[in-house]
């Protein structure tokens, strides 16, 4: 009765999913369950529509974003990628992160949006290569230990991008 997110969208539980299929099945589900379809329905039906549509949105968000998708796949394997007891990161990755953070701060003080944009582009390249290795680690090699490390890096990278976007917002007024 309780489906996992891949089952909900009728997809195979792999990292390298077909995004077009995810998108079209998401829309198919929302076409059935969106509260707009139940505006004049009894309260019980409105409630189940609201719950189903909320779940579909949450599931869609989890599978659409690569970091979330990897995290969710690991959860299905019983692995928590980010936990309070599991915070160690390789030194070179931490150095890389510090460099990005410093570059962000410099660009913010200089109010240099172009610099922040190129930083974002640099980070996207890094994210892309992590995603490629996750496809191999999760879908082919099933090496969940290495996949957990890569997933955590991807989550950290997402966080840095988010912070840079916030920084841009502060100076772009």
């Amino acid at each position: 009765m309780s489906l996992n997110y891949f089952e909900l969208f009728g997809l195979e539980p792999i990292f390298n999913i077909e995004l077009a299929a995810l998108e079209s099945n998401f829309r198919k589900i929302q076409s059935e369950s969106h509260p707009d379809r139940f505006v004049t329905a009894p309260a019980a039906e409105k409630l189940s529509a609201m719950q189903q549509a909320t779940l579909a949105n949450e599931a869609y968000l989890s599978l659409k974003n690569p970091a979330n998708r990897a995290k969710y796949l690991l959860e299905l394997q019983g692995i928590t990628a980010i936990s309070e007891t599991n915070t160690a990161m390789p030194t070179d990755f931490l150095m890389q992160q510090m460099e990005w953070r410093e570059a962000t701060e410099d660009a913010v003080s200089a109010k240099d949006i172009t610099a922040l944009d190129s930083l974002l582009a640099e980070i996207r390249v890094e994210a892309k290569s992590l995603q490629d290795s996750l496809t191999s680690l999760l879908d082919v090699q099933k090496d969940y230990t290495a996949a957990t490390d890569a997933t955590r890096k991807l989550i950290f990278i997402d966080k840095v991008s988010e912070d840079i976007n916030r920084a841009i917002e502060q100076i772009d007024i």
Binding site: N25, K28, I29, E32, S33, P42, A44, E45, L47
Partner: peptide, 23 residues
């Protein structure tokens, strides 16, 4: 309404899975 909540949820599930199999 309260008595039909589980029924409504079951119908919702059925309609969603029907829609996906069609898709």
């Amino acid at each position: 309404n309260h008595a039909t909540e589980a029924f409504a949820a079951a119908r919702m599930n059925a309609s969603v899975s029907h829609a996906l199999s069609g898709k």
